[in-house]
């Protein structure tokens, strides 16, 4: 029965609780309006159902009522818009990307995610960068910025537990930042129809403790080095 729930699963990113809060506010408001209007409707249908000898009242309307039911919804929706505005800017405004974030390059293509990490030197676009497919590994203690590009069509990078979604448009450099709040393994999906293999364009996002993350990076760097030699298996790339 939990599939029928209107509750959200626990989020795992810094903006998650704020988005969820806004969602619940809207859920409560719309829930109340839903019940109130539908019950009124059903009540009227019962109360004013046709009976012999009964005639409807000749009423054309009521200006006061019109003003009230224009103003109240207007105020409610404006309040929702105002509440949404700040959070929206916090998430999407490029000015709000944390400066100390770890930068990772994401290249989307039909039908895989390729992630390029700064190697031991902590800088992208240097010789020690390494690339893994369909998995994103990040440390718990600092924010991450994805520098996203697509080589073919539009894909959409979707991490449900992080409340993250961003279309990646080919020809445009896109950015997305996030700060995990707990360690764990989370699914990644493609949310924009991108062709025949759209359904299998998935991956995993692993949030490590800082120490584990360092260990993982070291493993990758060594793996990349040994992969250069023949017959060595590519260790970190997740099999399809």
């Amino acid at each position: 029965m939990e599939n029928w729930s209107w509750m959200l699963d626990e989020s795992a990113s810094s903006v998650g609780p704020q988005i969820d809060r806004l969602y619940y506010i809207i859920l409560v408001i719309t829930g109340i309006v839903f019940v109130a209007t539908e019950v009124t409707l059903l009540y009227f249908l019962f109360k004013y159902r046709h009976r012999e000898g009964h005639k409807a009242e000749y009423i054309h309307g009521n200006t006061k009522a019109e003003i009230i039911w224009t103003a109240i919804p207007a105020l409610i929706v404006l309040a929702i818009a105002l509440m949404s505005r700040g959070l929206w800017a916090e998430i999407k405004d490029p000015a709000n990307v944390p400066a100390d974030a770890m930068r990772v390059m994401l290249e989307a293509k039909q039908f895989e995610w390729n992630l390029t990490y700064p190697g031991p030197d902590g800088e992208l676009r240097t010789g020690d960068d390494f690339t893994v497919r369909n998995r994103l590994d990040i440390p718990l203690d600092r924010p991450t910025v994805l520098e996203m590009t697509s080589v073919d069509v539009i894909h959409s990078f979707f991490v449900p537990d992080f409340r993250l979604k961003q279309d990646i448009v080919p020809g445009m450099a896109m950015q997305m930042w996030f700060q995990p709040t707990r360690a764990g393994v989370f699914p990644i999906g493609c949310a924009e129809l991108c062709g025949i293999g759209h359904t299998r364009m998935r991956g995993t996002l692993t949030v490590h403790s800082p120490a584990d993350y360092q260990a993982w990076v070291n493993e990758q760097v060594q793996g990349a080095a040994s992969a250069a030699e023949p017959a060595a298996p590519a260790p970190a790339t997740q099999a399809q």
Binding site: L8, V15, Q18, I19, L22, Y23, I26, L27, I29, T30, V33, F34, T37, E38, L41, V77, I80, A81, M83, S84, L87, W88, I91, K92, S156, F158, P160, R163, L164, K165, A191, E192
Partner: peptide, 22 residues
């Protein structure tokens, strides 16, 4: 009424992030 109210969710851009394209 239901269709209109569910529209409010995605009209709020932050809430639209998780539900967009679902």
């Amino acid at each position: 009424i239901i269709g209109g109210l569910s529209g409010i969710f995605m009209a709020s851009a932050p809430v639209d992030i998780p539900i967009h394209d679902t």
